[in-house]
């Protein structure tokens, strides 16, 4: 069954004619220049931005779902995360259980284990490094056990080890029968970890398909307006501006 089905999704002056579907186990990477609509699309899918068009999650129209039911099915990791208060890691992760109205220890422990933050559980979030914080923010979303996980640039400004760790955790979540949609600027990581990519330009889908179909020199050069060098056969794949 398709976990996400989107058709003719529109947001005035931001998104137009967006349509795609995603099956359980799939990771979809949203790529495109700044301002191309990646974050707006993720916010629409998370239920944060009003939109027109069809959007179904696990068969149900999302517009008809109660907010808490929507939040149980769809988890959202925003681009910039921060905590106003010096909460401990465990309390931040437990926030993921709010839509369920419980404090499911097993789910919280599993999320901390998946992201490798069990040893940080009693540390204050504001005293962790950027990479450690990124893992905690992801653990918070995973604790809600969402069928669809939306992540807006989850690896921006992380070191190589944390970038790989986050991408592998997202991959694992998809492999458990869920779907993941993430906005990403690192094409090499996108090529390695995403099943399909969606190249966006000015609020529309320019190209949608496997990494090999989307990451071509011609389409990337056209959208980013710089000459691009692509070698997807290399390990790891190479995609760079010339």
């Amino acid at each position: 069954m398709k976990l996400v089905e989107v058709d003719c999704l529109e947001v005035a002056s931001r998104l137009a004619g967006i349509g795609f579907s995603l099956a359980a186990g799939e990771v979809l990477g949203l790529i495109g220049p700044n301002g191309s609509g990646k974050s707006s699309l993720l916010q629409c899918l998370a239920g944060l931005l009003p939109h027109r068009g069809e959007y179904r999650c696990a068969g149900s129209p999302v517009a008809t779902l109660a907010a808490s039911e929507r939040a149980r099915r769809i988890g959202f990791l925003p681009q910039a995360c921060s905590s106003a208060w010096a909460l401990c890691v465990e309390d931040v992760v437990a926030l993921g259980r709010l839509p369920w109205g419980d404090d499911d220890r097993a789910a919280i422990e599993a999320a901390m284990r998946q992201t490798g933050v069990e040893n940080l559980r009693s540390r204050r979030i504001d005293r962790l490094s950027g990479g450690e914080q990124a893992r905690v923010w992801l653990a918070r979303v995973l604790a809600g056990q969402p069928r669809v996980l939306l992540a807006d640039e989850p690896i921006a400004s992380l070191d190589l080890r944390h970038q790989r760790g986050i991408m592998e955790t997202l991959r694992q979540h998809a492999d458990l029968g869920n779907a993941v949609i993430l906005a990403i600027h690192d094409f090499s990581l996108a090529a390695r970890h995403c099943d399909r990519l969606c190249l966006m330009q000015q609020g529309r889908i320019h190209r949608l398909g496997t990494p090999a179909e989307v990451l071509t020199e011609s389409s990337l050069s056209a959208v980013f307006q710089v000459p691009v060098y692509v070698d997807l056969d290399a390990s790891p794949p190479i995609v760079l501006a010339r």
């Binding site: 239920g47 109660a66 907010a67 939040a71 149980r72 769809i74 995360c81 921060s82 993921g96």
Partner: peptide, 20 residues
């Protein structure tokens, strides 16, 4: 109370957690 707890991580997170 639940909204106040969720707001620790900002309005967007609170809304994505299903809180009005």
């Amino acid at each position: 109370r639940r909204l106040l707890h969720a707001l620790s991580l900002g309005e967007q997170v609170a809304q994505s957690l299903g809180l009005a």
